[in-house]
């Protein structure tokens, strides 16, 4: 694991690498380096993209994007040989202009994850072929998973406008 850390540090600028426990490595990198770092990791054998997630750091006015990659293992020998670890790649993007580059050319299953983050956090992934709605029915002024979207307030404002059955009957 330390060897990989050294290799990454020598090939990329502006990376901050932490090893937590035995099996977790966290790499912090600038958003412009994401594509090259992920394709580098894929060539190193980390072919499985487990998750793309996003955290809304509203106090810093930034979004944190998280990519989690790990290695596929084929048989018992590889369990022994390969180091069993998850690599967590983190980057920060501005909250006012949330743009990032898509990684679907590297990992095919990134497509729905990026669609989801676009819908729920309002992040634009440049180069993504279909950033169309995935789950939601309505359009929201603030994307609903951001921290400044208050679910309870929305529910009150939305459902309280629907008149009660008695009121509707009275109108007839």
């Amino acid at each position: 694991m330390k060897a990989l850390k050294k290799e990454i540090q020598s090939s990329f600028d502006n990376v901050l690498i932490n090893i937590i426990d035995k099996d977790r490595m966290v790499i912090n990198i600038d958003k412009n380096g994401i594509v090259s770092l992920l394709s580098y990791l894929k060539n190193m054998g980390y072919e499985h993209l487990a998750l793309i997630s996003c955290v809304d750091f509203i106090e810093d006015n930034e979004f944190g994007l998280v990519y989690i990659v790990s290695a596929y293992m084929e048989n018992d020998q590889e369990y022994q040989k390969k180091e069993k670890r998850n690599i967590i790649v983190k980057t920060r993007i501005s909250r006012d202009k949330p743009h990032c580059i898509t990684v679907i050319n590297i990992f095919e299953n990134a497509e729905p994850y990026e669609r989801e983050l676009h819908e729920l956090f309002g992040i634009y992934f440049d180069g993504h072929p279909r950033l169309t709605p995935l789950f939601l029915e309505l359009e929201y002024k603030i994307p609903p998973f951001r921290k400044d979207f208050d679910t309870r307030k929305f529910v009150k404002g939305f459902f309280d406008k629907i008149p009660l059955v008695e009121e509707r009957k009275g109108k007839k």
């Binding site: 099996d23 072919e47 499985h48 993209l49 487990a50 596929y72 293992m73 084929e74 048989n75 018992d76 369990y79 069993k84 990992f107 095919e108 299953n109």
Partner: peptide, 24 residues
């Protein structure tokens, strides 16, 4: 299967012993 992020029995049906219970 690898490229599209298959896990579980979908990837084990292609001959790969990928099981988190063994790996971690």
């Amino acid at each position: 299967a690898k490229r599209m992020g298959a896990v579980g029995h979908a990837i084990r049906a292609t001959g790969m012993k990928y099981d988190i219970r063994k790996i971690e």
